[in-house]
Design a binder for these strands. Sequence first.
DNA 1: AGATAATATTGACCATGGTCAATATATAAA
DNA 2: TTTATATATTGACCATGGTCAATATTATCT
Lengths: 193, 193
Amino acid sequence: MARKPQKRTLQTREKLLDAARAAVAEHGFEGARVDDIVARAGVAKGTFFAHFRDKDALMDVLIGAQLAAAMEAAQSGPVPRGAKELIAALAPVHDVMTCERYVFDIILRYSGAAGIEQIGPIAMFFGQYINAVARWLGAHPPRADVDPGLMAEGVQAFAVQAMALTFCALHQEQSRDARLRRYLDAWFAPGAG
Amino acid sequence: MARKPQKRTLQTREKLLDAARAAVAEHGFEGARVDDIVARAGVAKGTFFAHFRDKDALMDVLIGAQLAAAMEAAQSGPVPRGAKELIAALAPVHDVMTCERYVFDIILRYSGAAGIEQIGPIAMFFGQYINAVARWLGAHPPRADVDPGLMAEGVQAFAVQAMALTFCALHQEQSRDARLRRYLDAWFAPGAG
DNA sequence: AGATAATATTGACCATGGTCAATATATAAA
DNA sequence: TTTATATATTGACCATGGTCAATATTATCT
């Protein structure tokens, strides 16, 4: 049986998270240093790793929170219909995902948890992403022959591809959303061309 | 004007690559250590970084070579027709891509070069992958309304998604190829369901 | 309150990737 | 061949993430 955590534990965790947010605000996600975070929090280095498996696990929490917030925002509006509206609705989420190359890498690495017990905020986010898109597609099905869940997985795959090409020297003639639009038009409305 | 490289330079590079291959054979890509590679090659540490920007750049070369070989093998057979044959033809390539989680991460990170001047073996491989698939799809077009290039980009996106889920604790009820099959059936033969 | 067990914190220490001024070697020019 | 210039190599050193036995604190039991 797990006891309830000490008050001190929660305080320390908050101190670390606050310090991390400050460090990220100042140096970006990639530039944030554990030593700096620990110093700002007024805590020993070992304490950091008693709270987070490693630096990336902290980033999982921080980035996951931003993704959750963006996802919340995306779901606050009306249900999008069609590729154009879907892309517009997801834009804030995709913005967070591509705010830094490092962030995108972390998101991909944490998108699928290696073990059930270590499903973190980013993995949770991906579940919400799929669910939301599936719900939207279920409300206004672009295709009758494929179930919304599979359609949503396709949207995710195409979105990731479009975002990845954002960081590519080649293929920069098209914007992320324009590229995604081409994919989704083909995915949603086959035979229409 | 760049002079032609010294004979010594090429020798040292080969020594490093041989040592790296040995280290990888023994400890895997992730477990390979720069200090070990350098020791095997009988060379100072600084020499390593005079030849490769960083450890990942060496991995780019090593992994890229394996991918190129697998791609070669994939193209040696007859032109595949339909989702099933396409997946079978690409299997050796996808095997290399998923041989280690670390390898998959590196491949994704290097899939799109950040700068034109730094297009490495893995980025080259992705170009070949798209070209080969586009050629195959052009020979036996599954859909008339979408051009083979875009179709091929979709195949890549779905393949990456299917492979990523390989490393995921959830979603393990389906194999990589079975999952990819579902995606491609929907991507290739809309309205057939 | 005092004794005991569980939990949290500490900081010296380690592992590993990466840097760079100094040095050595190879090539080109005289 | 000698000299000058470009290129390659060296290894001590640094930056950063991460470990763990020792210590301190908190919660629980009597």
